[in-house]
């Protein structure tokens, strides 16, 4: 564990907590894409399948449970909780996210580190996470102005993988044979997709107004 990865995990945790805070306290999911949340639930479900078979550390297992629990409960809230569901922008959240799942699965079957069931699904979760934010970014463009909590959620979610890139650079130079091209490229693509969001986020943030 290094400071970059810890910062990355904490940033990721913060993004989830900000979203849960928004949904649970003000009972609103305005501006939040249910489709992105569904993709993230699939990402964690396929990435943490090894939670019962390979134990890394208490921290690792705990965080996996947190991410699994929060992603599924956010989907549940947005789908079935009356008050929250009412604030869900169904008409605008129309990105065909299931069209993202199949290509990621095919790509994982073609490009992976080991051809085993767990490893292919783990690789699939990497590819899917790289594009999971797309429905949210499209919804963002359509709803134009979003509230600060949603903006902070997206900012933190984009930032965590950027910190992971620093972690991979650090581990590459400090651990022999630490080479994971698939993870690195997927993580880079994922972070680059946030580029224009970061640009507007900082512009607005500096201007002191909401994110538009």
């Amino acid at each position: 564990m290094n400071i970059f990865r810890l910062a990355g995990d904490m940033t990721h945790l913060a993004s989830v907590l900000v979203l849960l805070l928004k949904i649970h306290t003000i009972k609103s999911c305005a501006g939040v894409s249910l489709r992105t949340q569904e993709l993230y639930a699939i990402v964690f479900a396929t990435r943490y399948l090894d939670i019962f078979t390979s134990f890394v550390s208490v921290y690792n297992t705990f965080m996996k449970l947190v991410f699994l629990g929060s992603s599924f409960s956010i989907v549940w809230y947005m789908r079935y909780h009356k008050a929250v569901h009412r604030t869900y922008d169904r008409e605008q959240d129309t990105f065909r996210h299931w069209f993202l799942v199949l290509p990621c699965l095919v790509l994982a079957l073609l490009i992976h580190e080991k051809f085993t069931f767990l490893e292919v699904l783990w690789t699939f979760s990497l590819y899917l996470e790289a594009v999971a934010i797309l429905p949210q970014l499209v919804l963002l463009q359509r709803t134009r102005n979003i509230d600060n909590l949603t903006g902070q959620y997206i900012f933190l979610l984009g930032g965590y993988r950027g910190l992971y890139i620093l972690n991979w650079i650090y581990r590459y130079f400090t651990e022999p044979h630490f080479v994971h091209w698939i993870t690195w490229i997927a993580g880079l693509v994922q972070t680059l997709l946030y580029a224009d969001f970061f640009y507007y986020y900082f512009l607005r943030f500096i201007g002191g107004r909401g994110v538009e």
């Binding site: 990865r5 890394v56 996996k64 991410f67």
Partner: peptide, 10 residues
């Protein structure tokens, strides 16, 4: 030994 490569990251 060729320890099956564990994913130690989240």
């Amino acid at each position: 030994q060729d320890q099956p490569q564990k994913h130690d990251e989240l």
